[in-house]
């Protein structure tokens, strides 16, 4: 019985944990290019919290760092080519 119920429901939302909290990252630095490359899509957009699973304080830090790094041309505002 339980199985049929499970099949019918569209999907089971799984709890995401903030990766940055797990790694105990205190500060996200705009100079930390490697990390920032992971925080943007290959289009150059900031990965939304719903996908990344970041907690609010961390996502805010990521956003700020990405925007600063863009100003310094370390990461693109818009990536028009796939890497």
């Amino acid at each position: 019985m339980a199985k049929t119920v499970k099949k019918k429901s569209a999907r089971v939302p799984r709890r995401k944990v903030c990766k940055l909290c797990l790694d105990r990252v205190e500060q996200i630095d705009y100079k930390d290019e490697r990390r920032l490359m992971r925080a943007i899509t290959d289009r150059g957009k900031i990965v939304p919290r719903r996908i990344s699973g970041n907690c609010t304080p961390h996502q805010a830090q990521v956003t700020r760092a990405v925007k600063r790094a863009r100003i310094l041309a370390m990461i693109p505002f818009v990536a028009d080519s796939y890497r």
Binding site: K16, K19, T41, D42
Partner: peptide, 12 residues
Amino acid sequence: GGRFDDDGGDDA
């Protein structure tokens, strides 16, 4: 056009 790379956990 996006591959969401989030440290590689397959949940996300």
